[in-house]
């Protein structure tokens, strides 16, 4: 464990807590893409298959349970909670996210480190996470006024993988033969997808104006 990875995990934890706080407290999911939440639930479900077979550390297992539990409960809230689901804007959240799953699964079947079920599913989760934010970013462009919590959620979610990139650089230089191109490329692509959001998020913070993404 290094400071970059810990900071990344804490930022990721903060993003899911901000979203859970928003949905649980103000009972609203306005501006939140259910599609992105469903993709993230699938990302964690396919990435943490080893939660029962490979014990790495208490920290690792606890965090996996938190991410699995929070992502599935957020999906449940938006789909089934009698108050929250009324604030879900299904007419705006129209990204066909299953069109993201298919290429990711195909790519995982061809490009992976080992051709085993767990490894292919793990690789699929990496590719899927890289693009999972797209429905949310599309929804933000359609949502005229983005509330602070949703903006903070997307910012923290994008920042966590950016911190992981520093973690990979650190591990590359400190651990012999720590080389994982698939993880690195997926992580860089994922972070780059947030680039324009980060720009507008920083601009709105600097000029102290409401965050708005150009359509």
């Amino acid at each position: 464990m290094n400071i970059f990875r810990l900071a990344g995990d804490m930022t990721h934890l903060a993003s899911v807590l901000v979203l859970l706080l928003k949905i649980h407290t103000i009972k609203s999911c306005a501006g939140v893409s259910l599609k992105t939440q469903e993709l993230y639930a699938l990302v964690f479900a396919t990435r943490y298959l080893d939660i029962v077979t490979d014990f790495i550390s208490v920290y690792n297992t606890v965090m996996k349970l938190i991410f699995l539990g929070s992502s599935f409960s957020i999906v449940w809230y938006i789909r089934h909670h009698r108050v929250v689901r009324r604030s879900y804007d299904k007419d705006q959240d129209t990204f066909r996210h299953y069109l993201l799953m298919i290429p990711c699964m195909l790519l995982a079947l061809f490009v992976h480190e080992k051709f085993t079920f767990k490894e292919v599913m793990w690789t699929f989760s990496l590719y899927l996470e890289a693009v999972a934010i797209l429905p949310q970013l599309v929804l933000l462009q359609r949502t005229r006024n983005i509330d602070n919590l949703t903006g903070q959620y997307v910012f923290l979610l994008g920042a966590y993988r950016g911190l992981y990139i520093f973690n990979w650089i650190y591990r590359y230089f400190t651990e012999p033969h720590f080389v994982h191109w698939i993880t690195w490329i997926a992580g860089v692509v994922q972070t780059l997808l947030y680039a324009d959001f980060f720009y507008y998020y920083f601009e709105s913070w600097k000029n102290n104006v409401r965050l708005q993404l150009p359509a």
Partner: peptide, 10 residues
């Protein structure tokens, strides 16, 4: 134990 020598990240 080759599997989790690099799956130790979240």
């Amino acid at each position: 134990r080759d599997y989790d020598d690099y799956h130790d990240e979240l």
